[in-house]
């Protein structure tokens, strides 16, 4: 898994590629914690290059969403979630915790 982080004026963009499973989820969790601990809670996660997400991966995203939405200080937006991944997310009812965009520009622009 590769993680690239860019900081914009109104939000942070995190581009993730590879697989998000029990082996890699802790690395992502650490990177996202670094961002939120710096007081940045408006996050756009580009998942277009992510081809697998297990429940351990979703929990990292959900816990980050909880943290960001606390006190209405921000939100995690997802971009380009592949169809099979989106289907598994909806099956366990977690899809409703995220707004999903088709492109990075629209997600960044929504903040």
């Amino acid at each position: 898994m590769e993680i690239k982080h860019s900081q914009f004026k109104r939000c942070d963009l995190v581009r993730i590629s590879g697989r998000l499973d029990s082996a890699t989820a802790p690395t992502l969790e650490e990177r996202l914690e670094e961002i939120t601990e710096a007081g940045r809670y408006r996050l756009v996660l580009d998942l277009s290059e992510v081809d697998f997400i297990s429940s351990k991966g979703w929990w990292v995203l959900i816990n980050t969403q909880k943290k960001c939405k606390r006190f209405n200080r921000g939100e995690v937006l997802l971009v380009n979630v592949q169809p099979q991944i989106r289907e598994s997310l909806n099956l366990v009812g977690m899809g409703k915790y995220f707004r999903i965009y088709d492109d990075v520009a629209s997600a960044v622009g929504s903040f």
């Binding site: 429940s55 939405k69 598994s88 366990v92 009812g93 915790y97």
Partner: peptide, 19 residues
């Protein structure tokens, strides 16, 4: 798993087996 719960109340228990 607690499907349909508000975000702040949702917990990971049971999601793996349900999936």
């Amino acid at each position: 798993p607690q499907i349909g719960k508000p975000l702040k109340e949702v917990k990971p228990r049971g999601v793996g087996l349900y999936l």
